[in-house]
């Protein structure tokens, strides 16, 4: 659906993105992950056709973005970092305007607008001025304008910025619901975001792709190990025994908490819990540690862009 080949963008001497290559298949949800200033937004701007690359090509649905911009733009719904909304318009009027701009048939405009309002839970504020809405609502209006023309591809640049936790989970559910109907490219620097919604992750740093894999693939590829976090009544004595256990690679303690890195097999977890219980250390909690992806991310993006 989207194919990016040798994409490069230079601002004067500074290279924003450097020979990027990746593909996004139809119906896929891809997370575009990177720290601030990694080149995420630049890449999105080039794909959506509002900026030209210094070098390289982009095809969307088989058409070159720069040779057939109108055809390509019909297929894309785009939410930039700041929601592109007119403050002095009413929500419904604004969405109608966008639907017309995107070339919706005039008969379908009202239903498309209603559907977009419904999907983003904006129906009750549809007759309010956008400037009077809270930041979260403005963000949702931004998402609604990307959805309104029912595009094949959705490109969302940090869609949950500024939302409260309830809204964040709603938006994630919404993105999940789009799976299958739309191809989604989601740019973010928030890790749980990609963990919650994406099938495939592209990690970008200083203009280079440093990793491209599924979530599971990434986790196992980097360390080949997983981590569980234990909370015990008494820690003393157990550490040495755990260290001797087959499959355990590393044990770190922090107060009553203990991080245990292991080879990822269920058998090892079983023997860890058996050991702790039989030792009378008082097992209060045992859970897989979600921080693993963050570790990968930090490791990949702090090496100065090395592949």
């Amino acid at each position: 659906m989207i194919e990016v080949k040798n994409l490069t963008k230079r601002y004067g001497d500074r290279i924003a993105i450097d020979t990027l290559n990746f593909k996004v298949k139809k119906g896929e949800i891809v997370g575009f992950l990177g720290p601030n200033g990694a080149g995420k937004s630049t890449t999105m701007k080039i794909i959506t056709g509002q900026m030209a690359p210094s070098d390289g090509q982009v095809w969307v649905g088989g058409d070159d973005v720069f040779e057939k911009p109108i055809e390509v733009k019909k297929r894309i719904g785009y939410l930039p970092e700041t929601p592109p909304v007119y403050m002095d318009m009413y929500v419904r009027d604004f969405l109608t305007f966008v639907a017309k701009l995107k070339g919706c048939e005039s008969k379908k405009i009202k239903t498309s607008v209603d559907l977009a309002l419904e999907k983003t839970h904006l129906t009750e504020v549809s007759n309010r001025l956008i400037q009077n809405l809270s930041k979260g609502f403005k963000q949702r209006v931004g998402i609604a304008q990307a959805l309104v023309a029912d595009p094949e591809i959705l490109i969302l640049d940090e869609p949950t910025v500024g939302l409260d936790p309830k809204q964040v989970s709603e938006i994630r559910k919404l993105i999940q619901a789009l799976k299958g109907h739309h191809t989604v490219v989601l740019s973010t620097h928030i890790l749980p975001e990609v963990q919650a919604s994406c099938e495939r992750i592209i990690i970008i740093n200083q203009g280079h792709i440093v990793a491209e894999d599924t979530l599971e693939g990434l986790t196992s590829r980097i360390s080949g190990s997983k981590r569980v976090r234990l909370r015990l009544r008494k820690v003393n004595g157990v550490v040495d025994k755990l260290n001797l256990l087959n499959g355990v690679t590393q044990v770190n303690t922090n107060g009553n908490f203990m991080d245990v890195d292991y080879d990822g097999s269920d058998q090892t977890i079983e023997s860890i819990s058996n050991l702790v219980v039989s030792d009378g250390a008082g097992l209060l909690e045992l859970r897989p540690d979600d921080v693993a992806l963050e570790d990968i991310f930090i490791r990949l993006t702090s090496e100065g862009g090395a592949r």
Partner: peptide, 14 residues
Amino acid sequence: KSGTYGLLLTSPIT
């Protein structure tokens, strides 16, 4: 200034 220029530029219009 308000960022809506991007909306016009990414819409299928000349």
